[in-house]
């Protein structure tokens, strides 16, 4: 059994009720597990919400995480993703004085575009795999971004 820390994406379907998010995050903090990112939104036309948690740990730790999540009463299902489509969004605010056509081309390479222009700044959005978002944010540095927001990953099993 490998003891190295692996990046893992876990989706959790929970009843959409008060304090359910605290139950999940308390479990992670109380047992010393790691949360890299966490997204939550209700599942349409149901009483459930879906959480996507990016975490890291050894095989044993990941197995414990999924089992412990399952033990929580409002948790319906836990998916430990193996073969998935995973996407993340990033929004970047950049001074309007930068080279906008270059920025637009760069965004297009990462499934994005400029979505808003203001008096002094523009906002661009890209949507891609988390690893590629890292690359994009590196590349965009030369255009002096003022603010960057990452959404955290969402994933669906293929």
């Amino acid at each position: 059994m490998t003891e190295e820390n692996q990046r893992r994406v876990v989706s959790v379907i929970v009843i959409n009720e008060a304090s359910v998010l605290s139950r999940i995050t308390d479990l992670f903090s109380g047992r010393g597990y790691n949360i890299t990112s966490l997204t939550v939104a209700p599942i349409p036309d149901s009483r459930y919400s879906r959480l996507t948690i990016v975490t890291a740990g050894s095989v044993r730790v990941i197995e414990q995480i999924t089992k412990q999540l399952h033990k929580l009463i409002p948790v319906l299902r836990v998916y430990e993703h193996e073969d998935m489509v995973e996407k993340e969004m990033a929004m970047i605010k950049i001074p309007i004085t930068e080279n906008l056509s270059d920025i637009n081309i760069l965004c297009e390479a990462y499934n994005g575009k400029i979505v808003n222009t203001g008096e002094n700044t523009i906002i661009a959005i890209v949507t891609d795999e988390p690893k590629r978002i890292d690359n994009f944010l590196n590349a965009i540095k030369r255009y002096n971004p003022k603010e960057i927001v990452r959404s955290g990953a969402v994933a669906l099993e293929r």
């Binding site: 008060a18 304090s19 605290s22 139950r23 308390d26 009463i73």
Partner: peptide, 16 residues
């Protein structure tokens, strides 16, 4: 109370 008991109970409820 439910914030405190969450990590030391099997389950808890705040009845509203």
């Amino acid at each position: 109370a439910v914030g405190i008991s969450r990590s030391c109970t099997k389950h808890n409820y705040l009845v509203t």
